[in-house]
Amino acid sequence: MAIGDILELRVERLAAGGSGVARADGKAVFTDFAAPQDLIRARVVEERENFARAEIVKIMEGSSLRVQPLCPYFGTCGGCAWQHLEYGAQTEAKTAMLADAFQRIGGFAITPPIRTISSPPYGYRNRIQFHRVAKRRADISPVGFKRRGEDTVLPIDDCPIAASRIRTALAARELVPPVQVDRFNVYAHGDLLLAEGATERGIVEIRGKKLRIDVRGFFQSNATALEYLLDELMSAARSADPELRAADLYCGVGTFAAFLSDIFPRIDLVERDKTALALACENVRGHGIRHFAISDDEWARMGSKGEQEGYGFAVVDPPRAGLSTGLRNRLARMKVGTLGYVSCDPATLARDAKELAAAGYELRSLTCYDFYPQTPHIEAFAVFGSPRP
């Protein structure tokens, strides 16, 4: 096999990055925009010792899982990778990827049955980052997304995965990049529209609670999926002892703590972003609420009364890198009745789950949340029981 070779491939499955996987000459061949069961001709564009990458030249037999993409920019835009796939096939693939991560990385021979929570396939995305179009013209949109595989910006007038208020703003060309900024965030929910350089703060209502957010900081991008996640989070929290303190680590603007405060009068909130923590102070109030503007490692090194008495419930929502070593070690020695782990990367979740299990935690449930339909991105929620004595 060499670069430039034309291969005839039967696609077997989808890989974690979203590509279709086939086999040729004893190695895996990854091809974008393929579907399981496709028979394709593909040109090799990268060749390594253990794998190769190819691009589709012709679809000989199209899979029954293929559908017509809704977006006219699909394939050129660097965003969605799976609009050519039937939505059920997307969620099935994500569930399989999550299970594979726990078996291969986490070492779990058996996991609890994985539930999969779907989302509206389109019109779901409340928070989006746009890029400035370099040479503005009156006849094209001033904003867009990066082209696939390039560093240039593709002007767009619509985005079918975006919330309706964002689509309206795109069509009307209301979205204008702030001065001297190449990329900027936009958030919309209902009639609310926030954008960097314009209205940057506002109140969003999630499951009946009003939360103050800042569009420049992190907030979950799919409000519908977030509400489903909150339902499961609260169900897990209700099994914990409300007399004990709770903890919301990587708390952001305090979304989880705002709901947990209905059960736990005493909560520790930990967040290194001081702007986000200031909003958390507004969103979660009470005499038993403590705020820590420190990193996960700093908190792990710091002793607290909460650790001495034991936490009834703790939720962690780390970045893609997962828990720091220091925090994993602290959780291993703490008395946490129930631990909820919100993850945006199955690989690091599985790695951390392996360490938590070694410390005596029991994996009680595992749920795959489809926060990002039309993409291979996976969110998951794992619930762990307290360490064995």
Rank of each mutant, 00 (worst) to 15 (best):
2 A>G: 01
8 E>A: 01
10 R>G: 05
14 L>A: 04
19 S>Q: 15
32 D>N: 03
38 D>L: 02
39 L>Q: 09
41 R>M: 06
44 V>L: 10
45 V>D: 14
47 E>D: 12
49 E>P: 02
58 K>F: 13
59 I>M: 10
63 S>W: 11
64 S>M: 10
67 V>I: 15
70 L>N: 10
73 Y>Q: 10
74 F>P: 12
75 G>W: 10
76 T>D: 12
77 C>S: 12
84 H>T: 09
97 M>W: 12
98 L>S: 05
101 A>R: 08
107 G>R: 07
110 I>V: 08
113 P>C: 14
120 P>I: 00
124 Y>T: 05
135 K>E: 15
145 F>H: 12
151 D>N: 13
160 P>H: 03
162 A>S: 08
168 T>V: 04
176 V>Y: 02
180 Q>D: 15
189 H>R: 14
193 L>E: 05
200 E>T: 12
200 E>P: 11
212 R>F: 01
215 V>F: 10
224 T>G: 10
233 L>E: 04
233 L>G: 10
239 S>M: 13
243 E>D: 14
245 R>D: 04
252 G>R: 00
256 F>D: 00
260 L>T: 05
263 I>L: 15
264 F>P: 02
270 V>H: 01
282 E>H: 05
285 R>S: 10
286 G>T: 06
291 H>A: 10
293 A>N: 06
296 D>A: 14
298 E>V: 03
298 E>I: 03
301 R>G: 15
316 V>L: 14
318 P>T: 02
321 A>R: 09
322 G>P: 13
327 L>C: 10
329 N>Y: 00
335 K>N: 14
336 V>S: 02
338 T>M: 11
340 G>C: 11
358 A>I: 04
364 R>H: 05
366 L>D: 04
371 F>Q: 13
372 Y>E: 14
372 Y>P: 05
377 H>L: 11
380 A>T: 03
380 A>D: 06
382 A>D: 07
